[in-house]
Design a protein around this nucleic acid. Structure first.
Lengths: 196, 196
DNA sequence: ACTTATTTGGAACGAACGCTACAAAATAGA
DNA sequence: TCTATTTTGTAGCGTTCGTTCCAAATAAGT
């Protein structure tokens, strides 16, 4: 009854993610997006709404494919404490190996667009909350398994791990060396060991 | 022999800092700047060069009046270890009390503009290095005074404190509560005490 | 084949962007 | 008072912004 789309909507969305990731929300124009996605602006507006709507869909796509995928994979393949250690290690490794130093789209957005857009700010806050929940969930499991220092405050440690992660992401974007990022992380990881 | 400026160049620069701080580099237009500074665009270009030059001067002004002032004041009024604790406490306090949640201009710039401008990126990196140097300098003094745990690695701890500070700044910009920010900071501060 | 519904490329909209041109206004030395 | 030099307000330069319009193209049901 009607013409079909000539492009894969999800694949194009991935390309939009790359755009926003590289240049930020303000720094990315609709023309940039359309060209990178390989479609015309009419198709873009028809499929995704306006620039802001495309951005929130890009954020969601990124969260699902990057953050949630990582959390699910690490929790499937590692025990609680090791999942946390592997999470931090993977972030550092990917950060220093990324030649573009893009950092994390969620963190970049937290500083860039969240303060000027209450709704997007809430969304970003929820995603960061999911990362904290990952830490807290695995800390709780590790505590139940008797693998954490007795006096460790799990709420406080969850906050701390989240903060350390964000600090790493910021420093990574400025081009910091691996040694610095590992220095940021190490004391936080030491908290999880009984004998430091 | 020539007409005088009708505005205070430093005072106008402070107003430019507020502009960039509120809305970021890309989000601030030259018209925004001129209006906030209370001058015409001709005066702006005559006094500061172009938008980018005004931004680097704003960064420098911010670093001098905010970061360096704080470091100098705390080092003058506190002993080494207490200067570090007071630094973190002051950042948290100012963060939660700022109704605009502007965070730190240097950190915002580190994520926003530094990745797209090599020269500004280096400048921002140097400023962050000064903060790390503040931590390292006072850790060294505290060590000499025998007021730090014997096994504490000062390089690693300096990195860690810097990362924690940046994490706090990011979370503050998203509107985090005081309890979360203090949770991020507390384990880092505990590192400095022999009996935790 | 005709109708109906959707997508597509391309042109163009008004608004905002960074920046500049220019002449009037203001100062101080001659 | 005249000259030289700088600052100021204003208007507007060319470009790019997000977005929309529209006719041609494409599909499926009748």
């Amino acid at each position: 009854m009607a013409r079909h789309k000539a492009f894969d909507e999800d694949r194009a969305l991935d390309l939009a993610v790359d755009c926003f990731w590289h240049r930020g929300y303000e720094g990315t124009s609709v023309r940039d997006l359309a060209e990178s996605m390989g479609i015309g602006s009419a198709s873009l507006y028809n499929a995704y709404g306006d620039k802001r709507a495309l951005f929130t869909r890009s954020l969601e796509r990124y969260a699902n494919r990057s953050m949630r995928e990582r959390i699910a994979r690490l929790e499937a393949n590692h025990q609680s404490k090791e999942a946390i250690v592997a999470f931090i290690a993977e972030i550092i490794d990917r950060s220093v190996k990324d030649p573009d130093r893009k950092g994390c789209l969620l963190v970049n957005s937290a500083l860039d667009v969240a303060p000027h857009d209450r709704e997007i700010g809430k969304v970003v806050g929820r995603y960061l909350g999911e990362i904290r929940a990952f830490f807290h969930r695995n800390l709780t499991a590790a505590r139940r398994a008797g693998r954490l220092p007795k006096r460790l405050d799990l709420e406080e440690t969850s906050d701390h791990l989240l903060g350390v992660l964000l600090g790493i992401r910021v420093l990574a974007r400025t081009g910091a060396r691996r040694k610095l990022l590992e220095g940021v992380a190490q004391p936080a990881l030491d908290l999880l060991e009984t004998r430091q």
